[in-house]
Amino acid sequence: MRRAVAVTLTGIPLAVAVFGPVLAGFTNARRGPAYAFGPGYPLGTDGLGRDVLGLVLRGGLSTLALAAAATVAAYGIGTLVGLLAAGTRRRWMDETLMRPLDVLLAVPALLVLLLVAASAGRNAGIIVVVVTVVTAPAVARLVRTAALDAARHPAAEAMVLQGESWWAVHIGYVGRCIVRPLLADAGTRMTTSVYLVGAANFLGVGLPPDAADWAVLVDRNRAGLLLQPWAVLVPAALIVAFTLGVNLLADDLTRRRR
């Protein structure tokens, strides 16, 4: 039951985001009056007179792709730093790798985003970089803990005694051991990225204001909520459904594995 709900909640926004851009070609491309309903506009028009249905179909990919890119990059960097910190025999190296992350955790992630945007200007690429940098520490921490556990396992010690190389033990064997805890965590990292990317776009520091993006649509059409609620509610509902669904699905998968 819970799994069915989770799959539906994740599946609908994902399908709209992935297949939407293809279907959007069949929607009304002409501009109409702002915040209006009419024939040819099933969900009405937005503040710029564009067809809301077409915008919604086109607008999911940017949020999800930016968030996915940041998540993948954060995993790459976090895994590398975590494995090195756990694998090194030198305490100072562990400290140098992990301590700066503590400082970074003291500044709220959204504020780092705004600080960067204030100095570098509106830029979607920079959003991905910042989201990567602020989510990587959590991954590094998780990897380090999991890798330290794995390296203490009798199998790892046997490999060391057999004279296997540092790489074979600490990257090859330990790397394979930490895949499971990392995958279990992937869902929550993805929703964290969706949250940050969405908030950045909503606050107007990411994509341009006329972009077809769910978060930008919610922001730009808030003023017309009374006149034309669909331009705001449909993208907002899709974002909420996606995060709820991914969270439940991730929880379900971790539990099953235990």
Binding site: V218, R222, V240, T243
Partner: peptide, 24 residues
């Protein structure tokens, strides 16, 4: 279930949904 599901739900999206239901 509720606390798991609500992890990182974007506030701006949740807020406009609640505004639509409870205010409008």
């Amino acid at each position: 279930s509720t606390t798991v599901a609500l992890h990182c739900v974007p506030e701006f999206a949740l807020a406009v949904l609640l505004i639509a239901v409870f205010a409008l």
